[in-house]
Design a protein around this nucleic acid. Structure first.
Length: 416
RNA sequence: CGGGGUGUGGCCUAGUGGCUAAGGCGCGUGCUUUGGGAGCACGAGAUCGUGGGUUCAAAUCCCACCACCCCGACCA
């Protein structure tokens, strides 16, 4: 894409009233736009990142047998009344609205009720189970206080998967498989080395849930980490009984701030029972499926990547989620430089490279600063100085090198 | 929801009762410039968050409301 046609602009100054590092960088670089507190629009660059993240998650969810759906945002109160979660005193982050005729309608904050109810039409025998159903869908939560930029928002896209298993063993097996998939997702997203599976509160459903916590000073959570054992416990549940149960030595724990980038949750039969989802087993007896839910907030994951990988100059995207793989910078307005650069860009386009071309008539300093701010993994410069070659520089490295154009094209084609 | 803070051209800010609301960034035109946020000249761009009040006079003081940020509580 030609950067001169990109409608978003970069900003030199941090936006006022936005102290969180992730949102400062993402707003300045033109990835997101703030609509109001806790509500952000994804701009073309940001949407590209969200799409890359979505693809990674989708691939990993499909790999463990997930089936994708897209459920509705508008929710029938009936199922929620069955589970007891329609009450504002039980779930205090509801957005609710009404039909013209005055009947109530919920705006989805999660989908356990709706999906379980949906399965009444499709699950009736042990042969129909297990099923693993997921979606990428907007959630609405009327948080008392939005904060931390795109980390805690009132509207956000979440990948939520729900598992329906025939028994506890089958559930437990999938639960661990999904935990493995989560590790892969965070690894692929470039934050695996900082992300720990963490024991957390199971709420009213079970003793524990598991959070995936990425170490960062920007995190809202405090976790205690045993680096040797690679075990972590959320501060919320830390006490002597739990340490004993998990056979963790208190002295080996270090306190860390962390961002919850994912959460997996045993649900037992709470929702299947409430909604009345049952199946007939091998012996002709009625049984209730065991459920689990598995969530990842896409915006929060994007924000976390920015938060933990950026440097003083700007964002540093891992290749896997970068909006573009290459950022071609033209320095100088001389006709021959322009022509050479345009020709190179055309070749890249034809080769199917994912490339952003800074063809703007701006000063060298402007362009180089913007390249650092945008954080695309590889910077390619063509100028009067580069002759018949191009300058190649990784965003993560300080030094650049001149490379032969033909061999660049060949290498880039191979690694595609 | 409790406490604290902030609202001034598109963006970031200065202005704390008194002349035509100032500067930087960005934007437009022209000329010069092009390897780390270039220079000169000219120009466009403001319901000073909203409503009310005090005053000869309000961006500035008072009241209410709204929005945003931070801390806390909350986060099934």
């Amino acid at each position: 894409m030609r950067q001169s046609r990109l409608f978003t602009k970069t900003h030199k100054e941090d936006p006022k009233g936005e102290l969180s590092h992730n949102a400062q960088l993402l707003v300045r670089a033109g990835y997101i736009h703030k609509e109001m507190a806790g509500v952000y629009t994804y701009l073309p660059l940001g949407l590209r990142v969200i799409d890359k993240i979505t693809t990674i998650i989708r691939e990993e969810m499909n790999a463990i047998g997930g089936q994708e759906v897209l459920m509705t945002t508008l929710q029938d109160p009936a199922s929620w009344k069955k589970s007891g979660r329609w009450d504002d005193n039980v779930v205090d982050i509801w957005f609710k609205t009404q039909l013209k005729n005055g009947s109530e309608l919920g705006i989805a904050n999660t989908h356990e009720e709706a999906l379980t109810a949906l399965l009444l039409d499709h699950v009736s025998s042990y042969k129909d189970l297990p099923v693993y159903i997921y979606q990428f869908q907007n959630k609405f939560r009327n948080e008392l206080r939005a904060k931390s930029g795109i980390m805690r928002t009132r509207e956000f896209i979440m990948k939520d998967l729900y598992s329906f298993s025939r028994n506890t063993e089958e559930f437990q097996e999938f639960y661990e498989v999904c935990a493995g998939a989560y590790h892969k997702i965070f690894q692929r997203a470039g934050i695996g080395h900082l992300t720990y599976r963490t024991y957390a509160s199971g709420g009213s459903f079970s003793e524990f849930s598991d959070e995936f916590q990425t170490l960062s000073e920007a995190g809202e959570d405090t976790i205690y980490l045993d680096e040797q054992k690679q075990v972590a416990v959320n501060k919320e549940i830390l006490n002597d009984d739990i340490l004993k149960k998990l056979s963790i030595d208190k002295d080996k724990l270090v306190e860390k701030k962390a961002i919850e980038v994912g959460n997996i949750f045993p649900l037992g039969t709470k929702f299947s029972e409430a909604i009345g989802l049952r199946y007939t087993d091998n012996d002709g007896k009625e049984q209730t499926p065991i459920m689990g839910c598995y969530g990842i907030g896409l915006g929060r994951l994007m924000g976390t990547i920015v938060e933990v990988l950026s440097d003083g100059k700007g964002i540093v995207w891992p290749e896997s989620v970068a909006p573009f793989q290459f950022h071609l910078i033209r320095l100088g307005e001389a006709a021959e430089v322009k022509e050479k650069c345009d020709r190179f860009y055309d070749t890249c386009q034809k080769s199917g490279f994912d490339i952003l071309y800074d063809d703007r008539e701006a000063s060298a300093g402007d362009k180089l600063h913007d390249a650092d701010l945008l954080g695309i993994p590889v910077r390619l410069v063509i100028s009067a100085k580069t002759g018949e070659k191009i300058e190649y520089k990784k965003r993560t490295e300080e030094s650049a090198s001149l490379v032969d154009i033909t061999s660049f094209i060949e290498t880039a084609t191979k690694s595609k």
